[in-house]
Computed example of a mutant assay.
Amino acid sequence: MGQLLAPPGPHAVHLCIDMQRLFAPYAPWATPWLERALPEAVRLIAHAPPRTVFTRFIPVRNKAEARGVWKAYYEKWECVTRDKADPGLLELMPALTRFVPPATVIDRQTYCAFTNRR
């Protein structure tokens, strides 16, 4: 693991990207990192919840709404569109919900949580 060259300043923000039930072990897009990262995320967030920004990946409503490269993607993964998937899968992991508010949540439908581009 790397080391910081200086401590985070007073305006530092903790970005917590896509820590949702959609990526939990039992979900369609299960990722092995989520369970390993969750305890550390909770520890960091508990230190300063108002300085945390969560992003959530929100799939399109149905595959017909998908554009560009996402069209082929949702042809394969139609099961995670909002018309097909359990809406609860879009929620943050249960261990994180207690931090909102004061933590902020930003929802995105593309791979980038910080732009309006698709």
Rank of each mutant, 00 (worst) to 15 (best):
G2L: 15
G2S: 14
Q3A: 11
L4E: 05
L4W: 15
P7L: 11
P10T: 01
A12S: 11
H14W: 08
H14P: 04
L15S: 09
L15R: 05
C16Y: 01
C16H: 00
I17L: 05
I17M: 00
I17W: 01
Q20T: 09
R21D: 09
L22I: 12
A24L: 02
P25I: 10
Y26I: 08
A27R: 11
P28K: 04
A30P: 06
P32L: 12
P39D: 13
E40R: 15
V42R: 07
I45R: 00
A46I: 04
A46Y: 01
T52Q: 00
T55N: 02
I58F: 09
P59A: 08
P59M: 12
P59V: 09
N62P: 01
A64S: 12
E65G: 10
E65S: 14
E65K: 07
A66K: 08
G68F: 02
A72F: 03
A72M: 13
K76T: 14
W77C: 02
E78W: 00
E78V: 10
V80R: 04
R82K: 12
D83G: 11
K84C: 12
A85W: 12
A85L: 15
A85D: 08
D86L: 08
D86F: 14
P87F: 07
L89R: 13
L89F: 11
L90N: 10
L90E: 12
L90P: 05
P94H: 07
A95M: 12
T97C: 06
V100N: 02
V100I: 06
A103W: 01
T104D: 05
V105W: 08
D107N: 14
R108Y: 02
R108M: 10
Y111I: 03
C112P: 03
A113H: 06
F114D: 10
T115R: 07
R118G: 12
